[in-house]
Amino acid sequence: AGIRAGRWAAGPDWCFWDTPQVELTGKVMGILGFGTIGHRVGELAHAFGMKVMAASPRKSAAEAAASAAPASYPVDFVERDELFRASDVLSLHCPLTDQTRGIINASTLAMMKDGAILLNLARGPLLDEAAVAAALASGKLGGLGADVASVEPIKADNPLLQSPNTLLTPHIAWATLAARRNIIRIMAENIAGWMKGEPKSVVNKAYLV
């Protein structure tokens, strides 16, 4: 919009910007929950020259490293609190359980670097939204990107709607036509596999009978 309005052409320099620029190379991408999606996020972060660190909300660093699928890029598995302290960008990819509900709260936010960026691409209740809003308002958090909220559609009194440096999307990351077709295909393959006695996409193999 600024270019179309003539700001670039009228400016004294060969470029312009309204907000500070962020260099990703050398920064730490912290991933809480290193499953299929977290693994892919790490791959993208590595492509930008970021150092990738990962932790599990329920396993030790050694257990997470032993159970993770092999990665084509270097990953440091650390304990959860170390992940919070080290991350320049913290991306959440864990399920919502009793252990992870409100895992980002005043206490864990206090561990994080000043100005760190938080991404919630998992489930809204992973955040204590009031605490996150307060951290954004104070500048403790440098920014929030979230595709989810604690109540969806988001309510008018959600504190994140008034937070600075906040980008919210309406739980839309899954919703491309290709992704929805993929969901239907996977469901059909799972049903067919189960009927043949060859279950697919098994999460808890211990419960197969």
Rank of each mutant, 00 (worst) to 15 (best):
D81R: 09
W8P: 04
E43F: 13
K155Q: 15
L136M: 05
R85D: 03
F84G: 00
Q21H: 10
A135Y: 02
T108A: 11
A130M: 06
A1V: 08
S56M: 05
P199I: 02
K51R: 15
V148T: 02
C15I: 07
P74N: 07
D157S: 10
P95N: 11
A55H: 04
T108I: 08
A175D: 14
F16Y: 13
P20V: 02
K205L: 09
L161Q: 10
A175H: 11
A68G: 07
S107A: 15
A5Q: 15
P199E: 09
C15M: 11
I104H: 07
T176Q: 06
G49R: 08
G11E: 11
A54H: 01
M187I: 12
I31A: 01
K113Y: 06
E79R: 04
A173F: 09
S138N: 09
C94Y: 01
W14I: 09
A122D: 02
A9I: 06
N204I: 11
R40Y: 10
T19P: 00
A206K: 14
W174V: 05
I183F: 13
W174K: 01
R58G: 14
A188N: 10
K113G: 07
A206P: 05
D13R: 14
A64K: 00
G35F: 04
R101P: 00
R181G: 10
A130N: 10
D76I: 04
L32P: 02
A66E: 13
K196E: 15
G193A: 12
S138C: 08
G33I: 03
I172D: 10
V78D: 03
D18V: 10
L161Y: 07
M53S: 02
A62V: 14
E189C: 10
L144D: 05
V148F: 01
E79P: 03
A179S: 15
E82A: 14
G38A: 04
D76H: 12
A55P: 07
